[in-house]
Design a protein around this nucleic acid. Structure first.
Length: 257
DNA sequence: ATGGTCGCGCAGCGA
């Protein structure tokens, strides 16, 4: 099974690149973030034409997540399992694909440490942990994939002291991410790669991509049964190049299952 | 040292 995740920063603008990428990357499951599309406007036919079923969860303009799968797409759940169904703000979608409980997540940015947006980010991550704990079993195959807007450690940032006014690298955010680890999920990329400067996002401005100034904030957090079957992990930097790229690269994960 | 680019949508905000 090949699992992928990609923050596309507007699926409307990015659809031609996503179609091209599906053609050569050939994922079985693709989690999308920042589609910026209402469900009614989602290009379902384009995915069906390539052999994928698709589910989306978005209100348009901001946020929006989706899951495309060519190995089945069942038990779709939009948002958090408990509480107000709009609390997730179009940032969480879950489905069962080929026996794996997959979630596509777009964690709030947080803007600046200590702001109300930052507190909301921490609360969102706590809700995500509660959602996973309420709906999944760590002894079963679970994959929570997407843009976490948290760099797990200092290897994952070009310069931790200059990152985003302290967000993405703060102890509070990393602790919130560690809560998912404590529940039973592991950062799949780190099972295959231990090096630094292996980023998944680069600011559009000032040529940051070419200066290797980025962060690794797009993650696949997987339960032990999947972690044990991981054979390959890649950040596809090629897809960050060329015409009209997203500011995020897609990630690929192969599992022997 | 500062600002720099996108997307949305039509001004300026969010990232």
């Amino acid at each position: 099974m090949r699992l992928a995740t990609w923050n596309v920063n507007s699926l409307k603008v990015r659809l031609p690149r996503v179609e091209e990428w599906l053609g050569y990357a050939q994922p079985d499951v693709l989690c999308l973030q920042e589609t910026k599309l209402a469900d009614a406007a989602f290009p379902t036919m384009a995915f069906q034409a390539l052999g994928y079923e698709v589910a989306s969860h978005g209100a348009g303009r901001w946020n929006g997540v989706a899951i495309a799968s060519r190995i089945g797409l069942g038990d779709v759940e939009a948002g958090f399992h408990e509480g107000d169904p709009t609390l997730d703000e179009g940032r969480l979608l879950s489905a069962t694909c080929g026996g794996v409980r997959v979630s596509s997540v777009y964690v709030p940015n947080g803007r600046s440490v200590g702001s109300e947006h930052f507190e909301a980010k921490l609360e969102w991550l706590r809700s995500l942990r509660a959602h996973v704990a309420a709906t999944c079993d760590p002894a079963e195959p679970v994959a929570v994939c997407g843009d976490f807007n948290v760099a797990p450690d200092d290897r994952d940032v070009w310069d931790a002291s200059r990152a985003h006014g302290g967000t993405h690298v703060s102890e509070a955010e990393r602790s919130a991410l560690a809560e998912l680890v404590e529940w039973g999920l592991v950062d799949a990329f780190r099972l295959q790669h231990s090096g630094d400067r292996l980023f998944s996002w680069w600011d559009y401005r000032a040529g940051d991509f070419h200066k290797h100034k980025g962060m690794r904030i797009d993650l696949a957090m997987v339960s032990r049964p999947l972690a044990e079957r991981l054979t390959f992990a890649l950040i596809d930097r090629q897809a960050r190049k060329g015409k009209l790229p997203s500011d995020h690269a897609p990630l690929l994960f192969d599992f022997d299952c």
